[in-house]
Amino acid sequence: MAFTSFLAGRIFKALLVILAIAALNFLLIRLAPGDPASVMAGESGATDPKFVETLRTRFGLDQPLWKQLLLYLGQIVQGDLGFSYRNQVPVIQLILERLPATLLLMASSFVVSLGLGVGLGMLSASVRFFNRKRWLDSLIMTLALICYATPLFWLALMMVIVFSVQLDWLPAFGMESVGANLKGWARISDIAQHLVLPTLALSLFFMSVYVRLTRAAMMEVMMQDHVRTGFAKGLTGGEVLRRHVFRNALLPIVTFAGLQLGQVAGGAVLIETVFAWPGIGRLMFDALLQRDYQLLLGVFLITSATVIAFNLLTDIAYRFVDPRIRMEGGAR
């Protein structure tokens, strides 16, 4: 019961935030110099000034701003993301075409960074705690530090040079071999190969954060009395880890996992540019440069909504990880 009303409240608030985001972005984007009509005139070598005016009228840009905003919000409430005048198709269609690619990249980098990060972090913390192979701890922490300090796009470029150009192990760009007409498993393995470099490039930074979070959280918990008691009671290291440490270390990790999603969306712009990944980050950047207002707003709306939904999920996850957390508290 409490859970349902909590959920309803959160969803209602989330919807309000989404509307506010839509309105703010709408006004913000309008501050940019130039509009879709002038970009299109520029690109097509238009020499007729009336042409630009015609376009503006067709796009509805000649209306007063407040009217356009109300129109737009009205659309949003009805679940309509609008029409991309530049591409001559509904915004939702463009986004849905591109979204799977980004979701795939996000999911794989999420799994890789979380898996590697938590694994290495645990390893690092335990070797340190049990005072065995401390060099391993130093190695992992140094690796994490370097990954944390490397510019994402630069790493991507260097990986392309090494693994695609020099070694020729992996494809350098795209999501699948165009024109190969692969089916079934062949296609899946083709996509998987294309996925390796972008995933790695996007994962390493987040991996380093997970390594540090996991290690720090575990160290903290291992210092606590009940864990020490556990050892005193004669439990083995593995049992202590499982029973006490990991469970408590999960909290900060879940928190960051919630935040990662939003960060990945930003990083996707860079990664998708370097690897020609046909995803939503690139769509956003192009829409920005082309002043394709409705498309840009649509992309923002979808990513924000995803982030909010994910935050909500994190909050629920908290509840299961640690029922003591007050649900109104939200993610810290």
Binding site: A32, P33, G34, D35, S38, V39, A41, G42, E43, P49, V52, L288, L289, Q290, R291
Partner: peptide, 10 residues
Amino acid sequence: DAGSWAKRVS
């Protein structure tokens, strides 16, 4: 960017 350039030159 392309948008600002076209606008300002126009």
